[in-house]
């Protein structure tokens, strides 16, 4: 046991630079993937929620458009949720080469993880939207707000708050699962551990280092997400600045 820890420390000092590079790539992949994925998820989830309901006075072509959009988004979600990210990475990375284009594997990795997360986020956001009381939407529509305005100012802010724990979950999953992107030669943490193990034949210590670092990263992510969640729940309203406070006091 003590031997193992000693070897681990020896490896860490020796391969410090390699590990730092791995950590930074893993973090960038995880965070960018989650943030961009969330943005994709917001648009796709909101679009799906809008497309799934019927307006009383809408024209036939709008109905048809909604159906088509909903179908396309459905296909996107089905494909990217239903196939492994590793396979997606291979197809997208090498697929672009087939078109005669050259691109950096790290960029490819960012694209893959974002698009993949987007599919999950879309479903998380849609569930968040569905959890909002129908009265909120009716109230917004009854004072003349459009579909998008209702989504943007009333439903989505509440939906994001409700689905915040799931969004944090996605961040943790992404930090761990971007290790599958090592298949397209992205030098993230898992790849570096593999390199260390390969060149020293100290397999268990090398992967133990990776495990400990992953654990620290995910715990940190969980901690930050919990803080953020508390903060979001405390600022009940954040749409307008509280300029009205001043005015109120003047009025008294």
């Amino acid at each position: 046991m003590i031997d193992l820890i000693k070897t681990m420390f020896a490896l860490i000092t020796k391969y410090k630079n390699l590990l730092w590079l791995g950590i930074s790539k893993t973090l960038i992949l995880g965070i960018v993937g989650t943030v961009v994925g969330l943005l994709i998820g917001l648009v796709v989830g909101a679009l799906r929620a809008i497309c799934m309901k019927k307006e009383p006075t809408e024209k036939t072509w709008i109905k048809l458009l909604k159906k088509i959009v909903n179908m396309i988004l459905n296909i996107y979600i089905t494909i990217f949720r239903g196939t492994p990210m590793m396979v997606q990475a291979m197809i997208i990375y090498f697929g672009v080469y087939d078109f005669g284009l050259h691109w950096d594997s790290f960029i490819a990795g960012l694209v893959v993880i974002s698009v993949n997360t987007g599919a999950y986020m879309a479903e998380i956001i849609r569930a968040g939207i569905q959890s909002i009381d129908k009265g909120q939407e009716e109230a917004a529509r009854s004072i003349g707000m459009s579909d998008w305005q209702t989504m943007r100012y009333v439903i989505l802010p509440q939906a994001i708050r409700n689905s915040f724990p799931s969004i944090g979950n996605e961040l943790i999953v992404n930090i761990k699962d971007c290790c599958t992107l090592s298949t397209i030669m992205i030098t993230e943490l898992f790849y570096q551990a593999k390199t260390i193990a390969g060149s020293t034949y100290k397999t268990v210590p090398a992967y133990m280092i990776a495990a400990v670092i992953y654990l620290i990263l995910t715990s940190l992510a969980a901690f930050i997400m919990r803080k953020l969640e508390k903060r979001i729940n405390h600022t009940e309203s954040n749409y307008f600045a509280s300029a009205t406070v001043v005015e109120n006091q003047e009025g008294k």
């Binding site: 909120q136 009716e138 917004a140 009854s142 100012y153 009333v154 708050r161 309203s237 307008f240």
Partner: peptide, 14 residues
């Protein structure tokens, strides 16, 4: 204008 039984104030706003 419409006023509802369950008020339906926007919960994310003041």
């Amino acid at each position: 204008g419409m006023v509802f039984q369950s008020f339906n104030l926007f919960n994310n706003m003041s």
